[in-house]
Design a protein around this nucleic acid. Structure first.
Lengths: 149, 149
DNA sequence: CCGCTATAGTTTCAAAAGAAACCATATTAC
DNA sequence: GTAATATGGTTTCTTTTGAAACTATAGCGG
C-alpha cells in the first residue's frame, strides 16, 4: 500500500478552500458595507424566510450551533434588528422576529448578495448550476448517513 | 425589486456548511487518531508531494497564510516531523523536508484519508465525481478573476 | 407532588485564526 | 556604497469559535 494524495484532488481540501475564498470575497459586502457578521447574516435570512423562530430553530436552519446563534441574536437585539416575544408554553424560549429595521437591512443586502452570487456563477450554464446544487445535495445527504453510523 | 433569498439555494452558504461538515467529520481521523491539526496535515501533504519547500511555497500550495504555515511548521519541527535546511542564497528562508517520522506519519494517514473520501463520494458515479471537481475548478478560477478586478 | 432527566439558552474558558507590528536579510535606486 | 523598499518568517494582540459548565424551566416516572 503505497498511496499518494494530492491536495488538489482531495475533496475536503478543495471544498474548504473554495468555501474560504468565497467567504472572504463575499464578506466585503455584508461585513464592510453593512456591518454585520456571517452569523448575523444567516440569522437575518432565516428569520426573513420563516417569519418567527426560536433560537433553536434558527440554529437548525443555518447549521450553526446554539452558542453562535445566541451571540448573533444578542448583538442583533442590541442593534434593534430583531425583537423577542416570550413564549407562554415555555418560559425558557422566546420567539424572535425581525424588526422593521431588520427587514429594511435585509432588503438592502439581499440584492447585493444575489448579484454577487450571480457574478460568481456566471461562467456556469443553468444546467451546470443545477448539477452543482444537486451534487452538493447528494454530499450533504451522504454526510448525514455517515455521521449516523 | 423585492428579492427573496433562501439559504439553501445560496451557494456561499451551501459551500460553507458542506465544507464545515466535511471538516468536522474528517477531523476525527487526523486530529483524534493521529494528533495533528488541519494546517499540519496540509503541510504534510504539500511536503510529501513536492519534496522540499520553503514556508512561502507551502503557503501557496495549501491556501494558508504565512502565519498559519509558520505555526504548523514550528510544531511539526518540535514533533520531529520535518527538518529545516538553511538556504544559502537567502538566509531568511529555509528549505523544509519531511523527516522519516514525517513520511511514516504521512504513510499511515493517507490510506485512511483516501478511504474516508471514497466513502463520502461513494454515492456519486465516476462521471459525477469528475463533474464535481470540474465545477469546483471553474469556481476557483472565477474567484481569481473576480478578486483581480 | 417529587425527584430525575431533558431541553432552551447563556456564560465561561481555552483553542484557533488573522491583522498588524516586527525582525532580519535581500534587493533596488540612486 | 548607502538609503529606501521589499520580502521571508515570527511574534503579539485581538477576534472568533466551540466545548463544557451553568441557569432556569419543562416534562416524565413513580
Amino acid at each position: 500500500m503505497d498511496d499518494k494524495l494530492s491536495l488538489q484532488q482531495f475533496l475536503p481540501y478543495r471544498c474548504n478552500s473554495l468555501a474560504q475564498r468565497i467567504s472572504v470575497s463575499l464578506a466585503r459586502i455584508y461585513v464592510q458595507k453593512f456591518g454585520i457578521t456571517v452569523p448575523e447574516w444567516r440569522t437575518l435570512v432565516a428569520l426573513s424566510e420563516y417569519g418567527e423562530l426560536q433560537s433553536k430553530q434558527i440554529a437548525a436552519h443555518t447549521s450553526m450551533d446554539k452558542v453562535r446563534v445566541s451571540r448573533a441574536v444578542a448583538t442583533m437585539t442590541d442593534k434593534g434588528l430583531l425583537s423577542r416575544r416570550p413564549c407562554d408554553r415555555d418560559s425558557r424560549a422566546a420567539f424572535l422576529t425581525l424588526t422593521e429595521a431588520g427587514l429594511e437591512l435585509y432588503r438592502r443586502i439581499v440584492p447585493e448578495a444575489l448579484a454577487w452570487e450571480e457574478r460568481l456563477l456566471a461562467p456556469l450554464s443553468e444546467a451546470e448550476q443545477a448539477t452543482l446544487f444537486a451534487l452538493l445535495d447528494k454530499l450533504d445527504l451522504r454526510l448525514s448517513e455517515l455521521s449516523s453510523d
